[in-house]
Computed example of a mutant assay.
Amino acid sequence: MAKPVVLVTGANTGIGFEAVKAFAASPNPYHIIVGSRSVEKGEAAIQQIKAEYPDSSTTLELVQVDVTSDDSINAAFEAVSSKHEYIDALVNNAGAVFDHWLGNNAGSVRDTFNKAWDVNVAGTHVMTYVFAPLLIKSPNTPRLVFITSGLSTLQGAAENLVPPAHQRTITPGWPKEGGILPMGYRSSKAGMNMMMLGWHHMLAVDGVKTLCLSPGFLATGLGGDQKRLEKMGAGPASLGGTFIKDVVDGQRDADVGKVIRRDGVQPW
């Protein structure tokens, strides 16, 4: 049988990188398309994985893609479709947080908010829209995975259930000591959850298994100082990578159309 073809965006770092490692470590063979905004960083990531798993039956292919650029996404589609008639899974992992820009005077209130939505929602939506034709051509069970966040749950936010790294005492007055909450990031991930539902309903007739994956409180560069996060109880990023591989393998197909955690389903 042909190797499952899996495209992972943002695969040169964080849990995207860990997901590629998990595929490479598996006894089952895959063909992983490593999506990276930077060609140099993507190539370095591939070389590192090949060095770590020299006997892996999984093959790796680089594609340059910046999800904030329609031209880049379209070029990535042309590159992939010129080599592959279909893909079996699209893992929309590329994401970013910009709320810290305010504290560093690196961007305006509008910039920090809009940038999060551009990367995490609009960019992911365009990526899915462009690659959907290849996904639904899969002769196997195609899977569409969106990487969301534990901060995206509306119920959790209403009950103020947040990881330790995001807990803070809010003081009266203005400006707020310690800055404002990460509203751009967490609201964009909540928006992603709604977008996933739209894709779930639209592609179910094509046999596509669609869901959001919430990796949990992990020590990644996205969350800030990794050593500090580890001291606060964050798990290793590799847990997220293995989780992604398991979902692509179909282990959570019973939970399509939902936001899933490793230990169950995340409340909306």
Results as ranks from 00 to 15, higher is better:
23 F>M: 13
24 A>D: 01
19 A>C: 08
52 E>S: 01
71 D>I: 11
39 V>F: 08
30 Y>W: 13
73 I>Y: 04
77 F>N: 09
45 A>M: 09
26 S>K: 07
44 A>C: 15
56 S>L: 03
91 V>E: 07
53 Y>V: 04
75 A>Q: 14
26 S>P: 12
96 A>Y: 15
18 E>Y: 07
46 I>P: 00
33 I>R: 04
28 N>V: 10
59 T>S: 15
86 Y>W: 14
93 N>R: 04
60 L>A: 05
76 A>Y: 08
69 S>K: 15
61 E>N: 01
36 S>T: 04
74 N>A: 13
75 A>W: 06
35 G>K: 01
28 N>F: 12
19 A>N: 06
80 V>G: 02
49 I>P: 00
63 V>S: 01
70 D>F: 12
23 F>C: 08
19 A>M: 10
74 N>W: 08
53 Y>Q: 12
55 D>G: 10
40 E>D: 15
59 T>H: 09
82 S>H: 14
60 L>Q: 03
67 V>L: 14
65 V>I: 14
71 D>V: 15
65 V>M: 13
72 S>Q: 09
56 S>N: 09
51 A>H: 04
23 F>R: 11
26 S>Y: 11
64 Q>I: 00
45 A>K: 03
58 T>N: 08
79 A>G: 07
74 N>F: 13
67 V>K: 06
33 I>L: 14
23 F>T: 08
35 G>Q: 06
51 A>R: 04
23 F>S: 08
32 I>Y: 00
93 N>H: 06
67 V>Q: 13
27 P>A: 13
73 I>A: 07
32 I>F: 00
79 A>Y: 04
43 E>K: 05
78 E>C: 05
32 I>G: 00
93 N>M: 05
25 A>K: 10
80 V>L: 04
92 N>I: 08
74 N>D: 15
50 K>P: 05
39 V>M: 06
24 A>K: 02
18 E>C: 09
45 A>V: 02
33 I>Q: 05
91 V>Y: 08
39 V>R: 11
97 V>I: 14
35 G>S: 12
76 A>S: 15
40 E>M: 11
26 S>T: 08
82 S>Q: 12
95 G>E: 06
59 T>Q: 14
23 F>I: 06
51 A>W: 02
83 K>G: 11
35 G>E: 03
